[in-house]
């Protein structure tokens, strides 16, 4: 927790995918902080507690300077006398927050997040890994089922006119449009990643109608959702050819 907001980080047990979630302080009704605070929490326990709240309940998260627990108070908005309190004890992960240095990416595409979710799901049916190529003209997501020889491919062509891009899902044009593709293209780039982790990342589509895919040769793939209250990033370690 910092004066800007709350940043969450988590990694899968195999250290293949790291998720980073920033929630700006402006997304909270009130946000007070005396000094920066870093907590390690068991995500299952936190999720179990937060699921007890209904959509319109008020949740208050509190932790003191040398606290060992995060206290979550859940209040019914129209019945403020009904409050339930839950403690989530900290755990010792033996590490603090991981600072990820910014790198200059070679290529970035932005596509509709629902289309991206469909792509990830369908290619996952075919193979455990997929190749992503971004070239000047567009992007290509390819998966090959080595058993049957079946190949699946999704192609995104670069928008001829950036104005073709529309900001509402209802107006989605027939062809997938890559928004501002030219602005972030420096050189042709390709990466191979596991479809399983791409499926995980693509399931966050409800957060934002658009998703960005950023690549640099031999660097983790970055899948990023930007939204008003913050940003959600998935870093996925690449596969290399045998």
């Amino acid at each position: 927790c910092s004066k800007e907001g709350i940043m969450l980080q988590g990694m899968d047990e195999f250290h293949i995918s790291l998720v980073e979630f920033f929630l700006s302080k402006r997304s909270f009704e009130s946000y007070a902080l005396c000094h920066d605070l870093c907590m390690s929490l068991p995500i299952d326990s936190l999720a179990t507690v937060l699921k007890k709240a209904n959509d319109d309940d008020v949740c208050t998260l509190k932790a003191g300077h040398k606290a060992k627990v995060l206290t979550v108070a859940i209040e019914t908005r129209d019945q403020p006398w009904l409050v339930s309190k839950h403690d989530v004890p900290f755990i010792d992960l033996g590490s603090e927050y991981l600072v990820i240095s910014r790198i200059p990416y070679d290529a970035k595409i932005t596509v509709w997040s629902t289309r991206f979710a469909r792509l990830a799901h369908e290619l996952h049916q075919l193979s455990g890994s997929l190749d992503i190529q971004i070239i000047h003209e567009g992007a290509r997501f390819t998966a090959l089922d080595e058993g049957s020889g079946k190949k699946g491919c999704f192609i995104f062509r670069r928008a001829k006119v950036v104005d073709e891009y529309r900001d509402s899902e209802d107006d989605e044009p027939a062809g997938a449009i890559i928004h501002e593709f030219h602005r972030y293209f420096h050189k042709a780039t390709s990466l191979r990643v596991s479809t399983k982790y791409l499926v995980h990342a693509s399931k966050r589509a409800p957060l934002s109608s658009k998703v960005s895919v950023l690549m640099k040769e031999d660097q983790p793939l970055l899948v990023q959702y930007d939204f008003y209250e913050g940003v959600l990033k998935f870093y996925i370690a690449p596969r290399i050819a045998d």
């Binding site: 293949i16 191979r192 983790p220 370690a237 290399i240 045998d242």
Partner: peptide, 14 residues
């Protein structure tokens, strides 16, 4: 499929 790398190669893991 290729060999899966881990993030330890890219990030400075504690």
């Amino acid at each position: 499929m290729g060999r899966q790398q881990t993030l330890g190669k890219f990030f400075d893991m504690p």
